[in-house]
């Protein structure tokens, strides 16, 4: 029987993922690619919003999409129908994307320099908050058919998001969803968050969201390390 010994590890449990995410981030920075990680509960309209976004941005600059889904490839097919390149990652029983998966997806996708890479995470407001993918921003989508209290129930996700899109606003006349309360709750967990109201169905509010994407893309382009050296 060997002697028990103590190994002082002090290791970050998510350290491996953070390493992959950092590598992705460096790669995006070098290529001037804006990577956005779209997170929400299932069915809040991530794919619908992406399809409309891609239609509206067509021809302006290159876009590419990584689709995370537990089982199907239906979402990637919907994206490809807009003409944008898309790759599906099936996570199986895994309930979130991680930095390693996204790195491989980007190898296959080869997004052009200066493009916007949209990553649709698995519909889940819990673990995607903890798994960095190397994105510039997390964008949380909250649809008006969910509760106003979602930001308080899932504070980690709303605290990690730089932008919250309140989607399906076309349904507001039929619901008693209190948009102001939902926005106040999001600010409670994240006082720096930006909030925009959109409808992927009617297109209402989409311009403000596209302007936000354009602005973030310019930041990614001007922040390229090689540019700084010139």
């Amino acid at each position: 029987m060997s002697q028990a010994r103590l190994i002082q590890l002090e290791a970050d449990i998510l350290g491996k993922n953070n390493g992959y995410a950092a590598a992705n981030r460096a790669r995006f920075a070098e290529a001037g690619i804006l990577a956005l990680n779209l997170v929400s509960s299932p069915g809040s309209g991530k794919t619908a919003l992406l399809c409309r976004t891609l239609d509206m941005l067509a021809g302006e600059f290159p876009c590419a999409v990584v689709e995370g889904d537990q089982q199907t490839s239906a979402d990637a097919d919907r994206i490809r129908a807009t003409g944008a390149p898309a790759i599906q990652i099936n996570t199986g029983k895994g309930c979130h994307l991680d930095g390693h998966m996204v790195g491989h997806a980007v190898d296959h996708l080869h997004p052009a320099d200066g493009s916007v890479l949209f990553i649709e995470n698995v519909g889940n407001l819990v673990c995607p908050a903890a798994f960095d993918l190397g994105e510039a921003h997390k964008v949380a989508i909250l649809s008006v058919t969910e509760g106003e209290d979602k930001p308080l129930k899932y504070p980690d996700m709303f605290a990690a998001a730089d932008l919250v899109l309140i989607n399906k606003t076309d349904l507001l006349p039929h619901l008693d969803f209190d948009v102001e309360l939902a926005m106040a709750n999001a600010r409670r967990v994240n006082h720096r968050v930006r909030l925009l109201k959109v409808s992927a169905r009617t297109g209402e509010g989409m311009q403000a969201w596209l302007d936000w994407v354009r602005g973030a893309r310019l930041m990614a382009l001007s922040g390229r390390p090689s540019q700084a050296a010139e």
């Binding site: 028990a4 010994r5 103590l6 190994i7 002090e10």
Partner: peptide, 8 residues
Amino acid sequence: KIRELEVT
């Protein structure tokens, strides 16, 4: 974090 492991 994993702080430490006691191993044999």
